[in-house]
Design a protein around this nucleic acid. Structure first.
Lengths: 221, 221
DNA sequence: CGTATCCGATACATGAATGTATTCGATACA
DNA sequence: TGTATCGAATACATTCATGTATCGGATACG
């Protein structure tokens, strides 16, 4: 009997299907960011995407599978964008010290841009803390991002006639950790419901530039 | 009619009641850490605490209220412990450069200790990203922790005949961000389910000590 | 010793989200 | 034009957590 072992099992892969999945992921991005993965219902995602739950379960096994498909997509997008920014910025850099500050500022703007992406990453990290499998994926993401940023920094800095004092990976790591922390504070402070603004002391981005200057020195060449 | 406007409304505050609340919070700490605030059911918390849901709703209005009561308690505990550690460490510091490394190491051990507390904080942060009220509380916590660590660093460093180059708050902030990032990576790497260990490159704690040396210099006095 | 109060247990009603089984419609293909 | 296939919609059954209302027991107090 023709059980079609390898033609039937895999579900279709038509263009229509692909678009549906994309729309569901687009919707999920917003809904997850707003409500969180657990709070968000499949229903809510479908509603925003303009589909029914039938469509959802025809395309994804569960909400979790959707989340991981989504994170993969966004991680790729993010890394691609980081690369684009690097390509866009470093040919323009006339080799002088000021450019480093500029590059760092660009990088931070990039990190800072999307609050929703920050929420997604924060949730990704939280899930990773509870599941080894997720942790593997998450660490892979952060590792790739670190490398990308490290390369970027190194290239720029060399172009500017500077070099880093110490381990470049540690430095890029520090920069990412620091700018994330600051971005986070600004994000959290900005939305404070009650009257008073973030009067505390939102450490300025300039402080990061100061750090960069601290860990760079003229390349003797 | 004696409506007892200000004697009746407040629910009891007996010793028994206080103990019940504590036990519920103890249980919630574990359950929240393991499963997450949303996934964890009131039922699960009660079961671990050895109570029924009746007891729960007699003591807390909702799971969220419990979470906030719990975070307050833990934040206080954490800050108190930070203070204790500071008190414990700095009288012992014979003023030499090595002590700084030792202190940083102690600080990191402290941060590192409890994976569950990390999970709780991560969730706290995530909730803060979606609610201005929570954000206010969370920022207050991080601000206090920063101050505490900053004071600690400053005292120790002075005692060791060193001084920080640059803004001490930025430095303590950087240290916290960095050690959190590293702790996180170790935590995530450690639990990876599949065979391979965290072979990647777990930036060593020593690297942080290197950073401290980078931002300190002998106090000319 | 009896009674009242406080606190936790039990039982129940409700609402919400999930996943599946089935149906309907459109598009490709003969 | 008829038919088969694929993908999304609909309807349904089920599970699960919540919150409340009521009950029972213990302890304190007269």
């Amino acid at each position: 009997m023709s059980t079609d072992v390898d033609t039937a099992p895999a579900v279709g892969d038509s263009e229509r299907r692909r678009r549906t999945r994309e729309r569901l992921m687009d919707a999920a991005f917003d809904v997850f960011a707003e409500a969180g993965v657990h709070t968000a219902s499949v229903e809510a995602i479908c509603e925003r995407a303009g589909f029914s739950r039938g469509a959802f379960y025809s395309n994804f096994e569960s909400k979790e599978e959707l989340f991981f498909a989504l994170s993969d997509r966004e991680v790729d997008k993010t890394l691609a964008r980081a690369t684009d920014i690097a390509r866009e910025v470093f040919p323009a850099s006339a080799p002088n010290g000021e450019d480093v500050a500029e590059v760092v500022r660009t990088m931070i703007q990039f990190v800072r841009g999307e609050a929703n992406w920050h929420r997604i990453v924060a949730e990704y990290r939280l899930l990773a803390m509870r599941s080894g499998d997720v942790a593997t994926r998450y660490l892979d993401f952060t590792r790739r991002l670190n490398e990308r940023v490290g390369d970027m920094l190194e290239t720029i800095t060399l172009g500017a006639g500077l070099r880093f004092v110490g381990d470049i990976r540690l430095i890029s790591r520090t920069l990412i950790a620091l700018s994330s922390a600051i971005t986070e504070e600004q994000m959290l402070g900005g939305q404070s419901t009650d009257g008073r603004e973030t009067e505390g002391d939102p450490l300025d981005f300039e402080a990061i530039v100061a750090y960069v200057h601290l860990v760079t020195e003229p390349a003797i060449d």
